[in-house]
Write a protein that binds this DNA or RNA. Structure first.
Lengths: 345, 345
DNA sequence: TTGAAAGCGCTAACAC
DNA sequence: GTGTTAGCGCTTTCAA
């Protein structure tokens, strides 16, 4: 049997309230503090969080519902937020719903049963119905990476400026002289996919280019998807001279496809990739890329939910928008035609 | 305020005990069952798991402590085990200790405070001291992927037969006629590293080959590590004619290195890779590889801990050893010399 | 089959 | 600063 405060109380001769106060940061007379600390050591006492939760009506658990655990972007966000939450003595229960809305709803309800104090969700169900029960229960919800328009103002969120990210990448390619730019996107209709497409269109239209449907390929944010999409894109009769690939896994897959096809970067094709700087290391040493601040995303989520938990008015929801960074490598060159043109200049 | 059983009791006019029994699978008179079910719907009642835990002394939470969350092998194991555990109404708290023994110990203690019912651990600290407190508290521990010799017989475990896996791979290469085989390992002194090295040595020594230190490279189970290690290995004056790479990330990194160096597989070099069949998809279509049953590993862990929880004698620990599979692609050819030899045959 | 009542380990009034 | 006490929501004897 694990020791309880009652045991401490007996050993020290102090009342339960004093013991409790000691553990909750209250002021306790010096000699009693020592008394308690000795007893704690002697019994190897640790407070029972379950009992504490029952009393305080705070489980100190945050539920996290994500579409997929096998995704580097997601896991690095989770690591960062878990870190911060744990430092505040919050535990995190992660639930991978395999991008299945039914499972997502089950996960939310499961977590609600466990009396989680808050919910962080990278939503699969773009309608947001799975979150109704959480909102009805009055527990704070923070969306990550993807917004749900229908829930606007009713939940908080942490996202990156996807439109801007895409605009920046395309502008970089335009500046290098490219006029024919391919785009590799994730699943159609996903929030991030739409935003990144929008940014692409914005930048191109700003300079009067109407992209062809052929140059926009939807993959599924996997390595394999990126491989296929890039391969098909580059096999078309008039392939683009530059490429923007919009997530980490697809970037790896895409680079592999290019290597297999004997297309050199940047000599034959300029490429801007996505994410995960560290892992790239010396593998694609000179890849220019758009980098999402996963670490900050995770931390912002954690901070946001903690703030929400400490507020009287839990309806004061807010959306945090983080910026991406463009890190220049040497994978963007002027297109061949442009270089040829220069010779005649 | 969330509704409680007391509320149900009032609405239905039944006693608390009856309500409780209903929720715990006891027999309740038909008309009372209906009465309860109506009240449940009306109030949107869900049982409070925290209160239940306090009473039953079972939190229905399993703690999982892993070295790294950004690792595909680990996340797929976790997904599988979470799936199974959740179906049994167990929640999973995952704790990523960043391969830091200090953090690992903290994680274990944190989870103990939360009164987890059991612990699943892919250990970072090879001495196992971080688990002493869990064992002292009498909660079952299941190790995954890595054994801790010092804890032999005191904890359960699920591992793959790493020695055999490596033996199989090397035999495959030997059978193809290779006599000079390179090996890319993880961090030195890691359980899996040692086992995989052992298998390599076993197979080679069985045919009288003493491998050179030059042909055995230690990386750190990352893509970048694999890239570097393969590059260095292949740049040496007398590079091997075949290669066994012992994890997923390093296999990708290694393949990229080979492509960058212009070394063709299998024409110039035979390669056997590791893991993650699905993701490879058409990227390395013909790679022969050793495949760990991540899904089964996760499930076995879950089953094992559930079994342990239901046993009187929690000391009846056992180790489950799973086998790997060799799936043949076309990345293994006879070495060039051998082929040259054939011409003269 | 059902109900009354005790109590899991803790916190938070409240009185001292 | 400290002790007494009630009670969080549930399960589980025990008696009816």
């Amino acid at each position: 049997m694990a020791p309880t405060m009652k045991d401490l109380s007996q050993i020290t001769g102090l009342g339960l309230a004093t013991i409790s106060k000691y553990f909750n940061g209250g002021t306790v007379r010096e000699k009693n503090r020592i008394l308690i600390e000795n007893a704690v050591k002697q019994l190897h006492f640790v407070p029972n969080e379950v009992a504490r939760s029952l009393k305080t009506r705070r489980s100190h658990v945050i539920g996290v519902v994500i579409p997929e655990l096998s995704n580097a972007f997601i896991t690095s966000i989770i690591s960062a937020m878990e870190d911060l939450l744990r430092r505040r003595n919050y535990a995190v229960i992660v639930s991978d719903c395999r991008s299945d809305p039914k499972r997502e709803k089950e996960a939310v309800n499961f977590l609600l049963n466990r009396q989680v104090d808050g919910l962080i969700n990278m939503p699969t169900d773009a309608t947001g119905t799975h979150l109704k029960s959480a909102m009805a229960a009055g527990i704070p919800v923070v969306l990550v990476d993807r917004l749900i328009p229908a829930l606007d103002g009713q939940v908080s969120a942490v996202v990156i400026d996807n439109v801007r990210a895409s605009e920046k990448a395309i502008q970089e390619l335009l500046n290098a002289g490219h006029r024919h730019i391919g785009l590799i996107l994730g699943e159609p209709d996903l929030y991030t996919t739409n935003c990144r497409l929008q940014g692409y269109l914005n930048s191109l239209r700003a300079v009067g280019i109407t992209p062809s449907q052929e140059d926009i390929r939807y993959a599924n944010y996997t390595m394999n998807g990126g491989y296929q999409a890039v391969q098909q894109l580059m096999q078309q009769p008039d392939p683009p001279t530059a490429l923007f690939i919009t997530n980490f896994e697809m970037t790896i897959g895409g680079m592999l496809a290019l290597q297999n096809m004997g297309i050199r970067v940047p000599e034959d094709l300029s490429v801007i990739g996505f994410d995960k700087l560290e892992m790239f290391g010396n593998i694609f040493p000179h890849l220019t890329l758009i980098h999402q601040p996963q670490h900050s995303i995770g931390q912002e989520c954690a901070n946001l939910i903690l703030a929400l938990l400490n507020e009287e008015n839990r309806l004061s929801h807010r959306t945090v928008i983080l910026n991406t960074q463009l890190t220049r490598g040497t994978s963007v060159h002027p297109p061949k035609q442009a270089e040829a043109g220069k010779e005649f200049a």
